[in-house]
């Protein structure tokens, strides 16, 4: 009845029904993640929050803690697999950090830094995905989408709009927009939507705000995401709102 588990050898408390991720976050322990955002239902798709439980590797964001569970988040095989999953994401999309306004404020990049990823390793796919700049306030670069579905979830579960969906399957899976033309500018999307502010990469970006903070002085330029925290905690800074 003590409701404790161990994470990397540290004994931590948990509340019944809590996931490993939630319990770790409550205790201030960082487990890297991309598709997870505590404002929305756990998703489990990116696989970056892998942890070892016994001989199995599970996603911390979807796995409930059980009494006495021993979780390992730091062993080399976990780190290597996280890195490999990140390398797959980088190889799958068009992640050109030097050309991206989000660079330095990007969770994908920050998590890759955190895991010590030096290169995408795999042969890149270079998908041809046009940019949608049809909306007056926001731009979508589909080449940077990692299919975390945070915008899908935020639009559906918070904004009540269902602006976004995932279409296709396999490597052809892609983000689509619900409007007659398929363009963001023709949809119900608004800059005030939660969906506008949850993207962990530079796929959904506000216009006219790109370089308010110079490169080198951005969120993750000096300290790792494990200390700085998610974009969620720094939204106003990053999106340039007061």
């Amino acid at each position: 009845m003590s409701n404790h588990f161990t994470l990397d050898g540290r004994q931590l408390p948990f509340v019944a029904g809590q996931t490993i991720m939630a319990a770790a976050q409550a205790a201030g322990v960082y487990i890297p993640h991309l598709c997870h955002n505590p404002d929305y239902a756990p998703h489990g798709s990116c696989r970056v929050c892998l942890v070892a439980v016994g001989r199995r590797q599970v996603s911390a964001c979807t796995t409930p803690v059980t009494e006495g569970m021993a979780v390992d988040s730091r062993c080399e095989s976990i780190q290597a697999n996280r890195r490999a999953v990140l390398q797959m994401l980088f190889a799958e999309g068009n992640h050109l950090c030097p050309a991206c306004e989000r660079s330095g404020n990007c969770q994908l990049q920050a998590v890759a830094y955190y895991t010590g990823m030096l290169a995408p390793h795999y042969p890149p796919f270079f998908p041809r995905r046009p940019v949608d700049a049809s909306h007056p306030d926001f731009i979508i670069d589909f080449g940077r989408c990692i299919l975390c579905e945070l915008c899908v979830r935020a639009s559906r579960d918070h904004d009540g709009k269902r602006v976004f969906a995932i279409s296709g399957r396999g490597l052809a899976s892609h983000l689509v927009i619900d409007s007659p033309s398929g363009l963001l500018g023709d949809s119900d999307f608004a800059a005030t939507d939660r969906a506008a502010h949850v993207c962990p990469t530079g796929a959904i970006l506000p216009k006219h705000k790109g370089f308010e903070h110079p490169i080198g002085e951005r969120l993750y330029d000096r300290e790792p995401i494990s200390k700085v925290g998610d974009l969620r905690a720094h939204e106003d800074e990053v999106d340039g709102n007061e």
Partner: peptide, 11 residues
């Protein structure tokens, strides 16, 4: 046949 949901299977 990968549904495309998770990174390792899709990529």
């Amino acid at each position: 046949e990968s549904c495309g949901f998770c990174t390792p299977c899709r990529v």
